[in-house]
Design a binder for these strands. Structure first.
Lengths: 165, 165
DNA sequence: TTGGAAAGTCAACAAGGCTGACATAAAGTC
DNA sequence: GACTTTATGTCAGCCTTGTTGACTTTCCAA
C-alpha cells in the first residue's frame, strides 16, 4: 500500500503487459545501442568483445587482467584471445606490475585511444540524441531502472568505475 | 539542486562522463536482464536465440517466418536452425497458411507455453522488482530513453507489437 | 622454501551469427 | 500455360566469442 502511493489505482506500470513491453524495449534498444560501434569494428576486423575491452581499459587505465576479467565476466581464455589481438596490433600496452611483477597493467596506446574515440563518439552520439530527445528527468529514471536491474556485484562494479574522479 | 536545471540550463546530463556512465549502465543492466532466463535455458539445452523466438511467437501467435525474421533481425539460416529445434522438440507448431500456402504460421504448443511462462516469469520478476524499487515516474523515463535509442525501423516494430490489444 | 595467486597458452568444443548456393511449392503475371 | 517472384527450407562452410580442462611460468608471502 505504501508502495504505489496513488490510492488503489495504478500499479499499472507493473502489469504483465507493461513488463513485457519493457523486456522488448530492452531488446530493441540494446540492438540500437551496439549498432554504431559494430559498424566501425567491422572495418577493423574486431568484434564487440574487443570494444568492451577497449572501453574499460580506457575507463580505468592501468587496470590488471584479473580486474578486467571480473568486470567483463568472461573467462581468462576468452579475454586473452581478444587482448592478445589488441596488444599484437599495438592498440593496448601491457606493462609488468611494479609492486607485483605477476600483474600486468593495461593501457591504451595512442592508436588504441584513437579507435576508442571513434567508437565512443559513435555510441555517445546516439546516447546524446536519445537523452536530448527525452530530457533530464527521463534520463534520471532511465539510469535508476538500469541500476536496479543489475546483479548486486555488477552494481558494485558499476559504481566503482570512475567514482574516483 | 533541483536535479536537471541547476543554474544556467545545465545540460549536465549530456557530459561525456554522464554519457559513458549511461553506456556502462546499459552493459551491466543487459547482463542482469538476460541472466535469469539464461539459467533456465541451460537446463533445456537452449540459448538466447531460442528464447527470443519463443518470446515473439508468444507475443504474436500465428506470425509468419518472414515476419519473425524481420523482428529478430537475423538471417533465415540462423532462425531456421533455432526454429527447427523448437519444432522438433514440440514447443512450436508450424501451420501452413490458409490464404497463402507458402507461408508458415508459428504457434507455441502447450509445452512451448509452459517454457515461455517459466522464462518470462523469471525475467518479469527482475523487471518488476526494478520497477518497484524506483517508482512509476522513473519507469516512464526508462521507457522513453530506450525508445529513443532504437533504430527507426526497430521503433516501428516495437510499437506495432501488441498495440492491437 | 613452499603454497598459492596472477597470468599466459594450447586444444577442443558449442552457440549463434554470417554468406552462398540450391530446391521446392505456391502465387502472381503476361 | 509459361515464366517470374516470393516464402520457406536446407546444405556447407566460415567467423566470433563464449566455454572447459590441462599445464606452465613467474613471483609474492607465510
Amino acid at each position: 500500500m505504501i508502495e504505489g502511493r496513488q490510492g488503489g489505482e495504478s500499479l499499472l506500470f507493473l502489469t504483465d503487459e507493461q513488463l513485457r513491453k519493457g523486456i522488448e524495449a530492452m531488446f530493441f534498444a540494446y540492438r540500437g545501442f551496439t549498432a554504431d560501434p559494430d559498424r566501425i569494428l567491422e572495418n577493423h576486423a574486431y568484434g564487440r568483445a574487443h570494444h568492451r575491452a577497449i572501453h574499460f581499459i580506457n575507463r580505468t587505465p592501468g587496470t590488471t587482467v584479473n580486474n578486467l576479467l571480473s568486470i567483463l565476466g568472461v573467462t581468462k581464455q576468452s579475454l586473452n584471445r581478444v587482448l592478445r589481438a589488441l596488444i599484437d596490433d599495438g592498440l593496448v600496452e601491457s606493462r609488468v606490475g611494479v609492486r607485483d611483477k605477476r600483474e600486468r597493467h593495461l593501457f591504451l596506446t595512442d592508436t588504441g585511444q584513437t579507435l576508442e574515440r571513434a567508437l565512443s563518439d559513435a555510441q555517445c552520439a546516439r546516447m546524446r540524441s536519445a537523452y536530448r530527445a527525452v530530457g533530464p528527468d527521463a534520463v534520471v529514471g532511465f539510469r535508476q531502472v538500469l541500476e536496479a536491474m543489475m546483479d548486486p556485484e555488477a552494481r558494485t562494479q558499476f559504481k566503482k568505475i570512475k567514482e574516483e574522479t
